[in-house]
Nucleic acid binder design. Structure first.
Lengths: 206, 206
DNA sequence: CTGCGGACTGAACATCTGTTTAGCATGACG
DNA sequence: CGTCATGCTAAACAGATGTTCAGTCCGCAG
């Protein structure tokens, strides 16, 4: 039917991978069947195995594809910005992969934290980022906080009353809220912070 | 063997529920088999069904149990603090339930956001919380940020080099980092914030 | 044309897994 | 003592699911 000389149609292999990406990200790997992926891609379940060998290999291929997309074609620098600007299925897949704890995703997470730490260190040197006593921990926390809305997207959408939490409208509306906290904080005084520090000291030398 | 008159041993029903709670939270519902739960509890798979009817009912029983624990016995007020002070398996289960999107967890999430919004509103009135242009969105975001370290616990543990991310030591070490951001922010100027606002206006009236 | 290699499929296979069923032990109650 | 409910189990069942197998179709090199 679809000849290989037709440039408009993507190859069956790519369609399978894209369908898997979509479903894996939306429902989680274990809830997705090869038959469902095959149906989405319009092929037989056997072809999925023919091209990828196994479901696990297919998942790894999705990992690799997403990592390649986020790392970008030219430079080898992954970036949270690049990630957050990726297409919705890609973002959802990555968030899901991080939550499921695949090894490729773990490596990517580590890389992103490193780059974020460097970025914050630059900002600190240049004066637009505040000093931190634990810069590495802060970078890691910052990354998880940027990922949090991705992980809890359905809950945020419901609570905030938006239809598509990944849409540009929702992003433009709620990104300033996060940025406001990142810029001015939430609490006006050191009261809570000092309370925690006191607990820590009390616990450290009893 | 274990007679019902022995008060030291918990009932098989409770052991099944606790085993399920533990495994569901650690691995996710789909990856856990009834046989594994039964083995953990030291009973037969059939007894799991005998007591709970089905795997789905067992999951709902876990939901209800966790919700009851977090809501507390006396007052009907769930609280993020109560949740974060819960035992590790309970916390992990709730985080997993929120990520999997069960209906009970969704209701609990909504409740927690409401209470957090009230709490922040109180703080704003009393002067220890900064003003927000979107207080409800800020409350929701705040909740997801407190949940984020739970969701990405394995990655944080790896990156920060701690063995048990849920332990008291890790909490005492890293909670001040979060609180520092919540108190002082990360960025020193409104530059990033203004940039976003500009994008929003540009997008809003092209 | 002939043969070959790769894309592709329908059907079957093997296994895993939630659930059912029939039955066993034990203690309570008449 | 009989029997009846209850907690519990072993074994089997049924459906889903990842994977294999044998074979078809088709473009193409020789």
């Amino acid at each position: 039917m679809v000849s290989s000389s037709d440039p408009s149609a993507s190859s069956a292999r790519d369609r399978i991978r894209d369908s898997a990406l979509e479903r894996f990200g939306r429902d989680g790997v274990n809830r997705v069947t090869i038959r469902a992926i095959a149906a989405d891609a319009g092929v037989s379940p056997a072809l999925v195995i023919h091209h990828f060998g196994s479901k696990e290999s297919l998942r790894k291929a999705c990992d690799a594809h997403v990592v390649a997309l986020i790392r970008g074609g030219d430079d080898a620098a992954p970036d949270l910005t690049a990630m957050l600007e990726s297409a919705t299925p890609v973002r959802r897949y990555l968030a899901r992969a991080l939550l499921d704890g695949t090894s490729d995703a773990a490596a990517l997470f580590d890389e992103i934290v490193e780059l974020t730490a460097d970025w914050l260190a630059d900002g600190e040197r240049e004066g637009w980022v505040r000093h931190s006593e634990q810069p590495h921990a802060r970078a890691a926390l910052y990354v998880t906080w940027l990922l949090a809305p991705l992980a809890f997207d359905t809950h945020l959408a419901r609570v905030l009353g938006v239809a598509d939490p990944h849409g540009i409208d929702a992003t433009l509306r709620f990104a300033p809220v996060a940025l406001d906290v990142f810029t001015h904080g939430i609490f006006t005084s050191d009261r809570e912070l000092e309370a925690w520090r006191a607990v820590g000291k009390e616990h450290g030398s009893p």
